[in-house]
Design a protein around this nucleic acid. Structure first.
Lengths: 202, 202
DNA sequence: CGTCTAATTAAACACCGTTCAATAACTATT
DNA sequence: AATAGTTATTGAACGGTGTTTAATTAGACG
């Protein structure tokens, strides 16, 4: 026992995160197991506790990776979007959630303990998605209302989030026409349409 | 071992549900324990499995109780509401979630297994909340658009849900003016305001 | 070469969900 | 009333979990 320097500390940190992220994607939040992560990388559980201190911190950092990937997707989609940029954001939001269901649900399933101190870097990664939406909402708002952008953007994110969550939980299942994603777009239109006419409105 | 008829089957069923509901309210979904429920009622774990077959079924029925209480609150609030009935519904939605945080979160944390067959009674209890909102949305829509009510109501529920979930998860925490509940009301106003002018609009 | 530090581990603890054979209490039949 | 049959209930077992800790040992430092 007590081998060392198979991996440098940073490397080990990344190794655990990568294995943990992959494991979480496979089995989902409720069947996630720190022991299984340890098994996968050929270390013992204790090492994970040594590196992360708490399971909550490991889960938090894994979810931060997911946040980063999610924001990356939104940026990619914006880069190739036409003039209906907010619709593109809604689609990216949904697409990520549906394509990486287990990872996305883990974000919301994990309750970060009250007192936990968050690394600055993580907070930044996690707020990127919000920042992207705020910028686009601000761009769409007419000049005098631009100071609303922050609040309004968060409200619209919550709106899309609600539709996405309901769709994944099956609550929308029995509905005929009007997919959740189209309904979400319609609600954004309701909130923004009056304030700023977009081209090509459906 | 093997005492009998301390409680009739129905009584035992209710006893487990009541204890389970109370336990869930205290510790939340992630620390819920079937063994603890058994301990509380003075039976062994096996009995719970005998009565409910699966932990998932027990959790499902406990959550159904929560759904029932939630719909009850909405109805009570409607009964004493003024002319801004939808605002009253939004408030009731939030109030229940905040007052019974653990129970409310358990509803969304619990993934009902795909194949599970649901008792008719439960499905009814669970759909009541939606039905209440549909009725109020229909009442507010102008005659020609009344057939939209079903879809629109679900979309508005998703909207409020998103705001509520975000608020509880702390994502709204750092915002200045404009509480989540007021933002949710504003989004409903956006969606319905144009279609039906309400008195006393803020 | 010896000392110190800290990474790593095995093992232990106290739980958990789930299953199942054994048992005892009730029911039905004679 | 006695017997046979049914079934509610249990304890115990199995394999898993998160978390903690003392022991070990690889590497760093003098």
């Amino acid at each position: 026992m007590a081998r060392r320097y198979d991996h440098h500390p940073e490397e080990l940190h990344r190794l655990i995160l990568a294995a943990g992220h992959a494991h979480l994607a496979e089995v989902g939040f409720f069947r996630f197991s720190a022991r299984e992560v340890a098994r996968r990388i050929g270390y013992s559980v204790g090492t994970i506790y040594h590196v992360f201190g708490t399971l909550d911190r490991l889960m938090f950092e894994i979810n931060t990776i997911t946040f980063r990937q999610w924001a990356d997707l939104l940026e990619c989609r914006l880069a190739v979007a036409g003039d209906r940029r907010l619709d593109a954001l809604v689609e990216a939001y949904f697409d990520f959630a549906f394509e990486h269901r287990t990872l996305w649900q883990a974000i919301w399933a994990h309750q970060v303990p009250a007192g936990m101190i968050l690394p600055e870097r993580s907070a930044q990664d996690r707020s990127r998605l919000t920042a992207i939406v705020i910028a686009e909402v601000a761009a769409v708002l007419p000049e005098p209302r631009r100071e609303e952008a922050d609040q309004l953007a968060r409200s619209l994110i919550a709106t899309v989030h609600g539709h996405c969550d309901y769709a994944l939980s099956g609550a929308f299942a029995l509905m005929g026409t009007g997919s959740p994603i189209e309904l979400a777009k319609a609600r954004l239109q309701d909130a923004l349409g009056a304030k700023q006419p977009q081209r090509g409105v459906s």
